[in-house]
Measured scan of single mutants.
Amino acid sequence: TTYKLILNGKTLKGETTTEAVDAETAERVFKEYAKKNGVDGEWTYDDATKTFTVTE
């Protein structure tokens, strides 16, 4: 399944996708990605669109 991440950081904005077996796995991948890019904020997930959003 393809999951999407929307980054709404103070200095970094953008989108990325990952293939994962479930939302929990995708969330771990995306949180590591955000951490590596210095983005830390509020996380939300929309199951209907398989989209995570992190907003600083």
Results as ranks from 00 to 15, higher is better:
4 K>R: 12
30 F>P: 00
50 K>F: 12
25 T>E: 14
9 G>M: 11
52 F>M: 02
1 T>I: 11
30 F>W: 02
18 T>L: 13
42 E>V: 14
7 L>V: 10
33 Y>K: 02
33 Y>I: 06
52 F>D: 00
13 K>M: 09
33 Y>N: 02
19 E>F: 13
8 N>R: 11
22 D>L: 04
3 Y>T: 00
4 K>V: 11
18 T>A: 10
34 A>G: 03
13 K>I: 12
50 K>H: 12
27 E>A: 13
9 G>I: 08
8 N>Q: 11
51 T>E: 04
15 E>Y: 10
33 Y>F: 13
10 K>T: 12
42 E>C: 09
30 F>M: 03
56 E>N: 06
35 K>H: 11
48 A>W: 08
25 T>N: 11
53 T>C: 06
29 V>P: 01
9 G>P: 03
42 E>Q: 13
28 R>E: 08
29 V>A: 12
12 L>V: 15
16 T>K: 07
20 A>I: 03
56 E>V: 09
21 V>L: 14
15 E>H: 11
17 T>K: 08
27 E>Q: 11
45 Y>L: 02
35 K>V: 13
1 T>C: 06
34 A>I: 06
5 L>Q: 01
29 V>M: 11
42 E>H: 13
28 R>S: 11
38 G>D: 07
56 E>H: 08
41 G>V: 02
16 T>S: 12
27 E>G: 08
16 T>Y: 15
48 A>V: 13
6 I>T: 05
11 T>E: 11
17 T>E: 07
49 T>V: 05
25 T>L: 06
8 N>A: 09
23 A>N: 07
13 K>C: 11
28 R>L: 12
24 E>S: 12
41 G>W: 05
2 T>D: 05
32 E>H: 08
26 A>N: 00
12 L>M: 14
52 F>T: 01
11 T>N: 15
55 T>A: 04
39 V>H: 04
35 K>I: 10
5 L>V: 03
19 E>D: 11
17 T>Y: 14
47 D>V: 11
1 T>A: 14
37 N>F: 15
15 E>R: 06
10 K>L: 13
8 N>C: 07
48 A>N: 12
51 T>C: 05
37 N>W: 15
6 I>C: 05
37 N>Y: 13
15 E>S: 12
13 K>Y: 12
24 E>N: 08
38 G>V: 04
30 F>D: 00
48 A>G: 08
28 R>D: 05
45 Y>K: 01
37 N>A: 15
21 V>C: 08
28 R>M: 12
49 T>N: 09
16 T>A: 15
27 E>L: 10
22 D>R: 04
37 N>S: 09
1 T>G: 10
11 T>S: 13
23 A>S: 12
7 L>I: 15
6 I>Y: 07
40 D>V: 14
51 T>M: 04
5 L>C: 07
32 E>M: 07
44 T>L: 11
46 D>R: 03
26 A>D: 00
25 T>G: 09
52 F>K: 00
6 I>H: 05
19 E>H: 10
